[in-house]
Design a protein around this nucleic acid. Structure first.
Length: 359
DNA sequence: TCTGGGGTCCTAGGACCC
DNA sequence: TCTGGGGTCCTAGGACCC
């Protein structure tokens, strides 16, 4: 088992609202909620992220915006400005990268660093973490929390342990104790559904999980059961690596009100395709599969796909195929909530293969 | 409470090939 | 007469992550 590495996970604190508060000093210290338009409580959509001040009112990420409005009507509600967040993210990632050649960006606001060859022990790693936190705060005015451990799993769980602006160090000898007390829901890949199944099996904490026979987990969850068992013991051999290849690209839209007019559907498909086709060209990507997604007013969701025998980047093929695929769902007396278009089966140009695209 | 938008990965069944 | 087996590709649905 390789637990002689020292891995760091750096996670921005309430990233979107923090950027907004940085740009609007008058919003500092106030509940800022980034997400859909609340429309006086009648809005559709969810909270993307909210400031710590908003969390005091019970507002949480992924909560319906209408519920957030009920809890915190005096909040400052802002539509996400991804271009801005991506710019700030780029600057922060550039700062972090300098500290190790083994760097991996996992999302717009978090990254791993393998600092095994950069520090001699965990004490030095902790000092390095403080340096990185201060540099990000000084240069970009954003706070982050850091977790340090012998692998990516422990580092990630540790960065989440003390927030905001916390640092949590979990040495190899402390891994068992640290992880065993956590709720299973904290483990990556265990969401609400899996948690509920585990709870029904009498498994609530990681310690409970560690005591279950792997066979039972594999029988219940397939290969993921095996991974669950490994995680329960704090094992994660995966490397910190920047290698990444984009697998699909698309857009989707939820209508402000459910509709049944095919004309609106077709126009929306055109708009969605126009948007991401630009990206496709900029990235020099070809595709051979086109899929559509449609969601009815009762949230019932369907997908349809078609794969060609050739790769192309043709915009008209996407639009025509998407409209054909969507046709059977129209004029059947059902209202539509969402429509989406996506391309996959990608062929990337050589230069693109090593570049990481994070949205 | 009434569920965004960008993605990834997994599963299961069917087609097809050798 | 009672139905091979392995591999790959495709489709559709679903869970999950940030």
């Amino acid at each position: 088992m390789v637990d002689n590495r020292i891995i760091m996970h750096i996670d921005m604190d309430a990233f979107f609202p923090s950027v907004e508060q940085r740009e609007h000093p008058e919003w500092r210290g106030k509940p800022v909620i980034v997400g859909a338009d609340p429309r006086e409580g009648k809005g559709r959509g969810v909270v993307a992220s909210c400031s710590y001040e908003a969390r005091e009112f019970g507002v949480r990420s992924a909560m319906p915006i209408s519920e957030a409005w009920k809890l915190c009507p005096q909040g400052i509600y802002v539509r996400p400005n991804f271009e801005l967040y991506e710019k700030v993210s780029y600057n922060i990632m550039s700062l972090i990268k300098k500290y190790s050649d083994k760097f991996e960006q996992v999302s717009i606001d978090e990254a791993f660093l393998d600092v095994t060859n950069k520090v001699k022990d965990y004490e030095e790693a902790e000092k390095l973490a403080e340096r990185i936190k201060k540099e990000i705060l000084n240069k970009e005015k954003i706070t982050c929390s850091v977790g340090i451990g012998p692998n990516k799993l422990i580092a990630k769980l540790a960065s989440d342990y003390k927030k905001p602006y916390g640092t949590t160090v979990v040495k190899p000898e402390d891994v068992k104790l640290f992880i065993s007390r956590l709720n299973v829901r904290k483990l990556p890949g265990i969401g609400p559904k899996t948690e509920s199944v585990l709870n029904k099996m009498g498994i609530k904490t990681v310690d409970d999980l560690a005591k279950v026979d792997v066979k039972i987990l594999v029988d219940t969850f397939g290969v993921f059961g095996y991974r669950m068992h490994e995680m329960s013991l704090g094992i994660d051999e995966s490397e910190v690596t920047e290698e990444y290849e984009i697998k699909s690209l698309g857009r989707e839209k939820t209508f402000e009100e459910d509709i049944d007019d095919p004309e609106i559907i077709f126009n929306t498909i055109d708009e969605l395709v126009d948007e991401f086709h630009e990206e496709l060209l900029a990235l020099d990507i070809q595709f051979k599969t086109i899929s559509i997604k449609i969601r009815f007013e009762n949230f019932e969701t369907h997908t349809r796909a078609r794969t060609f025998e050739f790769y192309t980047k043709d915009k008209k093929i996407i639009k025509d195929t998407a409209k054909e695929l969507v046709q059977p769902f129209l004029n059947i007396g059902r209202k539509i909530r969402l429509i989406g278009v996506r391309v996959s089966g990608l062929k990337l140009s050589e230069k693109q293969k090593t570049l990481k695209e994070i949205t």
